[in-house]
Simulated scan of single mutants.
Amino acid sequence: MARIRLTEILVGAFMVLGFVALFFLAMRVSNLSLATAEDGYSLTAKFDNIGSLRVRAPVTMAGVRVGRVAAIGFDQETYQAVVTLRIAEQYDQIPTDTFANIFTAGLLGEQYIGLDPGASPDMLSNGDRIEFTQSALVLEQMIGQFLLSKAEEGGK
């Protein structure tokens, strides 16, 4: 009887550990975490079209994650999306003429922001704005433009 009870407790503990592991795996895959990293500094960038960019999307430089998208808003005066980036404090040497691009990981993957540093001796600091941006390439628009160009070629 005691042996059966011990087996049931071990199986229960194994199941609980399995569910905890699945929970942390799901959090990791979905770019969520229990801890919110508030350290670092904020930068903003305006884009004409952000595609399917989401809050918590990675911000990278040379393929290395240097931060995350903290917020996405809309400027009603310029009709542009305003993206707030949270950059880790150890990456404090980003030139003021840095270019921000919205890229897609793979053909249909998630979107992220890639920063291409410029050559300015001045560095961005908390609250600064990245002036040079490139909006997301929307696959549907590209296909539409391709079909339109092919239709015009066929009409000649």
Rank of each mutant, 00 (worst) to 15 (best):
M15C: 10
T84M: 06
L43H: 06
G127Y: 10
D122M: 09
D75F: 11
S30V: 07
S120L: 02
R5W: 03
P117Q: 14
T78V: 08
A119T: 14
F47N: 02
I9L: 15
F19V: 14
V69Y: 03
F99N: 08
A26C: 07
A45M: 08
V55I: 15
T44G: 04
F23Y: 15
Q80L: 08
T96Q: 09
T104H: 03
Y112P: 00
T44Y: 07
Y112K: 08
R86M: 12
A13K: 12
A37D: 15
T36Q: 09
Y91R: 01
G127E: 08
G109S: 11
R54M: 14
L32H: 09
S135Q: 11
A45D: 00
F14C: 11
S135Y: 03
V83W: 05
G63F: 08
V11Q: 13
A100H: 08
N126R: 04
L6G: 00
G63A: 09
M61I: 15
T98H: 06
L124Q: 04
F103I: 03
I87G: 01
E77N: 13
A105I: 05
A105R: 15
V69R: 00
D122F: 13
P95L: 11
F74R: 07
M15R: 11
R129E: 15
F47T: 01
V82L: 07
I50C: 00
G63M: 11
F132E: 07
G118K: 07
G109E: 07
R68V: 12
L124I: 05
A62H: 14
A100T: 06
G51W: 04
E77L: 12
G51E: 08
Q90M: 10
T60K: 15
G106H: 09
V55A: 05
I50K: 01
E8Q: 12
T78M: 05
A100L: 08
Y79G: 02
M27N: 13
V59C: 04
G127T: 07
V29K: 10
V83S: 04
F103L: 13
P121G: 02
T96K: 13
V69E: 02
A105T: 05
R65F: 01
F24T: 09
V20W: 10
Q134L: 10
E110Y: 13
I50D: 01
V69W: 01
G127W: 05
A21V: 05
L22G: 12
P121S: 05
L22D: 03
F103A: 08
L25C: 07
F74W: 15
Q93C: 01
N126P: 03
R56T: 12
L137Q: 15
A88L: 14
R28D: 12
T36K: 12
R5Q: 11
L107H: 06
P121E: 11
A45I: 04
I87M: 02
V66G: 05
L124P: 01
T96P: 00
Y91L: 05
F19T: 13
